[in-house]
């Protein structure tokens, strides 16, 4: 937190999106997206549903393919090359709205799967690392249970730990608290705040404006497939420039 300005100055953009366009058939989901994210930057993306937020961050690890424009992640351009795509995905962790834990594996197996099969880590080492991450998300005692035995909040924390086990440089969060009961949202947000304070580069699609105020370096507002506004949170919440942003904020902030 202290050296934020320095850190930013020192590092160039780790994610660059330039002129990105995407269509679902006739429907133009992403319209000329330009976005740069520096290493260590925390970006919160908000906007009405259907505005293309999820699609945009899913393009960053190629769960969705863009049809026009360029996306460069950590110096690797996302093109139709499976090797390149896998290399990018190894550097990016992703947390989903519906957790997507593997139901046939224990929590610990969920966490060690990718390190063992992608990073070729021996099981013992992978398990030790996994336990350390479970400590960090405060559920080491659940290691040998199956996902179905955990509450939603616990499952989402396992999902975060699972991504962290791959030691990613960037974390993407796709509405991580939208499927949770209200009393569980805080435990997940706490983990995310801690992660942000540790200096992780993060892009979060979320409607949790309290979280955005606490951690975001910049806010991105999307509507109708375009980035309408990008600004630091103080400015974004106090003096939104566009009418659409004002309308959106008036609807979600009471």
């Amino acid at each position: 937190m202290i050296n934020l300005a320095e850190r930013r100055a020192a590092s160039g953009p780790v994610i660059q999106m330039a002129g990105v366009n995407k269509w679902y058939g006739e429907f133009h989901v992403l319209k000329n997206i330009n976005l740069e994210v520096r290493s260590g930057e925390r970006v919160v993306v908000c906007g009405p549903s259907g505005s293309g937020k999820s699609t945009m961050i899913r393009c960053i690890n190629r769960l969705e393919e863009h049809q026009k424009g360029r996306i460069v992640v950590d110096g690797i351009e996302l093109i139709a090359d499976l090797k390149q795509i896998d290399a990018v995905r190894r550097e990016i962790g992703m947390v989903f709205q519906h957790f997507n834990l593997f139901p046939h594996m224990t929590v610990l197996e969920n966490l060690t799967l990718a390190p063992m099969w992608v990073r070729n880590t021996p099981r013992k080492e992978a398990e030790d690392a996994a336990m350390a991450y479970l400590e960090r998300v405060k559920i080491p005692e659940q290691a040998h249970k199956f996902p179905g035995q955990l509450s939603g909040g616990q499952q989402q924390r396992v999902a975060i730990a699972r991504s962290l086990c791959m030691k990613p440089k960037i974390m993407l969060f796709d509405e991580p608290t939208s499927a949770l009961d209200p009393e569980m949202i805080k435990e997940v947000l706490d983990v995310m705040i801690e992660l942000a304070q540790g200096g992780m580069t993060m892009i979060c699609v979320t409607h949790e404006m309290g979280f955005a105020r606490t951690v975001a370096d910049s806010m991105v507002f999307m509507d109708g497939g375009e980035i309408v506004e990008k600004a630091p949170p103080t400015e974004f919440f106090k003096n939104p420039k566009s009418e659409r942003t004002k309308l959106f904020l008036s609807q979600i902030l009471h």
């Binding site: 769960l63 896998d86 995905r89 190894r90 593997f102 999902a159 991504s163």
Partner: peptide
Amino acid sequence: VSRGQTEAALSLGLRRGLVLRLVLLPQ
């Protein structure tokens, strides 16, 4: 098996063959 399972496995960097063998087929 939900689409999310494939997406989660891919986003962890697993190759398609491994996704099929370790995540999809067992389910």
